[in-house]
């Protein structure tokens, strides 16, 4: 990740801070129009997941490139309870918290790449990327 920025997440106002910074970085990286909103919304979903399920964690944001393509990378990391069944968590409408269960699957649809690594009792790391058109 290039020019990585970190936003600590432990209460609801941090969700807003993270998505606003994400929008700014995406604009600096050359994204325009609705892509900025899609990126900010995806950040909002993964940041809320931290607040609701892990209580605290952090969002790391930065530019990235691969094979000459430029984009933005978002990492949401926490040391919370972890997700026992990732496949289930990625299904629309599945939720163990107080949500619609659209957070993670929604974020995946908004971004180009979405990876999730989770270990029960250790925590969860979500890595998302979006490439500039």
């Amino acid at each position: 990740m290039i020019d990585e920025r970190r936003v600590p997440i432990d209460r609801d106002v941090d969700i807003v801070t993270a998505r606003q910074l994400g929008r700014e970085l995406a604009a600096e990286a050359g994204f325009t129009g609705s892509d900025l909103t899609l990126i900010a919304t995806a950040i909002s979903e993964v940041a809320r997941n931290i607040v609701v399920y892990a209580e605290r964690g952090e969002i790391r944001l930065g530019r990235t490139d691969r094979n000459g393509r430029e984009g933005i990378e978002v990492v949401a990391a926490d040391e919370g309870p972890g997700i026992p069944d990732i496949q289930q968590a990625m299904q629309d409408g599945f939720s163990t918290g107080r949500s619609l269960g659209l957070g993670l699957p929604g974020a995946r649809r908004l971004m180009d790449e979405f990876e999730i690594v989770s270990e029960v009792g250790k925590g969860t790391v979500v890595t998302m990327r979006k490439w500039r058109p």
């Binding site: 909103t37 629309d92 908004l110």
Partner: peptide, 14 residues
């Protein structure tokens, strides 16, 4: 509802 927000809502499935 802003146009970009409307697009994001549709993508989210909301």
């Amino acid at each position: 509802i802003q146009p970009e927000v409307a697009i994001a809502l549709v993508e989210l499935g909301l």
